[in-house]
């Protein structure tokens, strides 16, 4: 669903919404879209303000960051 949304094709988005309605229900689909919207906000706050990783996250995320290539993001701030 998230990738359908960021892809921007309204037909594909509607297909995913219908699939979610059939599988998890309308309320869950709405809440999923709400979470997507929230992280459209939080990512913009973090990246617009130069928010660094929290101290407790730096070490425990090292393998994850490497596996997913997160350290290569322009927004990487280590």
């Amino acid at each position: 669903m998230v990738h359908a949304i960021t892809g921007g094709d309204l037909g594909v988005i509607d297909q995913h919404k219908a699939l979610m309605d059939d599988t998890i229900g309308v309320d869950a689909r709405t809440d999923a879209i709400a979470v997507y919207a929230n992280f459209s906000m939080m990512t913009r706050i973090a990246d617009a303000t130069g928010t660094p990783l929290d101290a407790g996250s730096t070490a425990i995320s090292e393998t994850l960051r490497a596996d997913l290539g997160l350290d290569d993001f322009i927004s990487s701030r280590m």
């Binding site: 998230v2 990246d47 993001f73 701030r77």
Partner: peptide, 13 residues
Amino acid sequence: VAAATSMANECFY
């Protein structure tokens, strides 16, 4: 969903 959105936005944080 939160992680997928953050990844799609290439948000390091």
